[in-house]
């Protein structure tokens, strides 16, 4: 029995204040990214979400690990969006936004921090070399896994890590795995090598 089903006042969604996590899903040159930030602007995710399920899974993880106060709000993400846009368009080579690796394990954090410290714009390394750089020379497979789960892609440049022997004569043959797919990885590598990444996609 639903006496009042026809009662449909004109209503609008609530307007809520900025909270623990603000997020937005952004379509970029390398694919769809879930951007989320803390109130102080630190970037918690810049994660590839190729389906609604992937988006849901990331948001649930943020809710479980950081805070369940997670709201979709585009304006706190404007700065990040602009920096990404400039970077992917080849108009800048660095980010000022600070990543927050709260979603990474201790090992993952050491891998990602080692990567940032040792591999600059336009250069690349291998899984084995990065494992050696963080003094875990036998852990190249674990390094690959850690990079694959990078919560802050592009900004923390896990795309600069390639399989051993993948490049010869300055030509990259096999870029290896990437959360955003091999095409996105190739786009970023070409962009950073300065050879017209923009026109390739």
């Amino acid at each position: 029995m639903t006496l009042f089903d026809d009662f449909a006042p004109v209503v609008r969604p609530p307007e809520l204040p900025r909270t623990d996590i603000s997020y937005a899903v952004e379509d970029t040159a390398v694919g769809r990214l879930l951007l989320s930030v803390r109130p102080d602007g630190r970037l918690v995710t810049c994660a590839y979400v190729r389906s609604g399920d992937e988006e849901e899974a990331w948001l649930q993880r943020i809710s479980d690990v950081v805070s369940p106060r997670v709201l979709r709000a585009p304006s706190p993400l404007e700065g990040v969006r602009r920096e990404l846009d400039d970077y992917l368009g080849g108009r800048s080579t660095r980010f000022t936004v600070r990543p927050d690796l709260v979603l990474a394990s201790a090992f993952q954090r050491s891998v990602l921090e080692g990567l940032v410290a040792s591999v600059g714009y336009g250069s690349s390394t291998t899984y084995g070399a990065l494992a050696a750089a963080i003094e875990r020379p036998k852990a190249s497979r674990a390094v690959g896994t850690a990079l694959g789960a990078n919560p802050v892609c592009v900004v923390i440049p896990c795309h600069r890590v390639l399989p051993a022997g993948s490049s010869a004569d300055g030509q990259v043959r096999n870029v290896g795995g990437y959360a955003g797919g091999p095409a996105a990885k190739e786009y970023l590598l070409r962009l950073e090598s300065g050879s017209s990444g923009r026109s390739s996609r």
Binding site: F7, P9, V11, T19, L59, Q60, S63, V70, L71
Partner: peptide, 28 residues
């Protein structure tokens, strides 16, 4: 204790909350 992201609640229930608020408190 796993709670869904708050946005899920807003998306799923904002119409019901608004309907109840209007029914109990009037249009103003």
């Amino acid at each position: 204790m796993s709670l869904p992201p708050f946005q899920t609640l807003v998306d799923a229930h904002w119409r019901d909350v608004a309907r109840l608020a209007h029914a109990l408190a009037g249009p103003n």
